[in-house]
Design a protein around this nucleic acid. Structure first.
Lengths: 199, 199
DNA sequence: CACGTTACGTACCGATCGGTAACATCGTCA
DNA sequence: TGACGATGTTACCGATCGGTACGTAACGTG
């Protein structure tokens, strides 16, 4: 009788995976520029050559980190979708209310994509471009939700919601909780109800 | 007869002033961490020891830069105040409309304070603290304006406006113009009118 | 003229940055 | 057993980082 029937024996995860996890921890908490590769490999329990065997450069690891990070966002969206199927308004408000809660954490660090964009003002930088690409997908989704809600001008509503979202990401870091970010849910309600048929 | 009656002859500006100007250009465009002191002194046309005679450290120069920068914000506020005396709503909307315009510049870089806060996640860092201090003054001013407008809940309205402001600062950099930031004026109108007695 | 003060430049520091070369070791599977 | 791919080890590279010791030119004042 085997105590662990899993087909995969509990092997040590690959160096690339350990590096991704380490990058997630450090890049998100401290920013990308602020973290050196030495710290990353130490935290991952691997060595520097392993990093450069799995990724082309620090920037390569950083873009991988952004993609990994953004998956968390879509996981959250999948959650609110499951909780409120076929109710775009409820989905959005659930996300915004959750955001308001999270932004009240004392060590809140906002959105890694947003942080990366501010950290790399050069629009040609690969990290910056990946972050911008992923952000555009969010806007597309918001426009879709606004259409579902029957907004008078879906793009206008989506843009307003983006402003609130990004505002909360940033303000949650700038003000001690509970700061302005705690009201992002209420503001989203106002904006949505002002631009959709009341229903 | 003297061609220049000024008591101060047109001397070359002091090293500290040249450094402040250089820091303004470089820190704002590229971020604080991204700019080395060598580049700053070269751009200023002075040498490194001059920097460290006028400022305690790079961080000291950075905090001075933030204070200088924020003066531009209050200058803008003074302008809209002069254009719309005794009309808090018009003052705010003038600022937000101007923000929407500025954020449409191809190389828009948002607010230096916001950028600095994201660049220095450590709340104990002196640069971060100075930025946070200056941001709080902005909120105080917004609360005051919201009271002037007779908002039902002035702090709630001020917080909503902060979210929009900061959102525009960030989104103006993340999306190519005209992005969501171009609608920040319209969103501010909605938020204000929803939370003040109509009129 | 001699003096102290202020402002500035040359040259340099140790530390850290991102990145690499060369070689040893391990587990897996044929 | 033997070959292979993934990983670890050690030592190193040139560049750049923030910061400083020290000498010097300019200037106002006695």
């Amino acid at each position: 009788m085997r105590s662990s029937p899993a087909p995969r024996p509990p092997r040590r995860p690959t160096a690339a995976d350990r590096l991704r996890q380490s990058a997630r921890d450090l890049f998100y908490r401290q920013g990308i520029r602020a973290v050196g590769v030495e710290e990353i490999v130490q935290n991952a329990g691997v060595t520097k050559p392993s990093l450069y065997r799995a990724f082309a450069s620090k920037d390569g690891l950083a873009t991988a980190f952004l993609a990994d990070y953004q998956q968390c966002f879509w996981d959250r969206i999948a959650l609110v979708r499951a909780e409120h199927p076929d109710d775009a308004r409820a989905q959005l408000l659930a996300y915004f209310d959750g955001l308001a809660e999270r932004s009240a954490a004392a060590d809140y660090r906002g959105c890694a994509l947003t942080n990366a964009i501010l950290e790399y003002p050069d629009r040609a930088h690969p990290v910056r471009q990946e972050a911008a690409r992923l952000k555009h997908q969010v806007r597309d989704w918001l426009v879709d939700r606004a259409q579902q809600m029957g907004a008078t001008n879906p793009e206008q509503l989506a843009d307003g919601l983006i402003l609130l979202m990004e505002g909360a990401y940033v303000v949650g870091q700038a003000f001690p909780p509970p700061g302005p970010a705690a009201r992002v849910g209420a503001c989203a309600r106002l904006l949505i109800d002002a631009q959709c048929g009341p229903g």
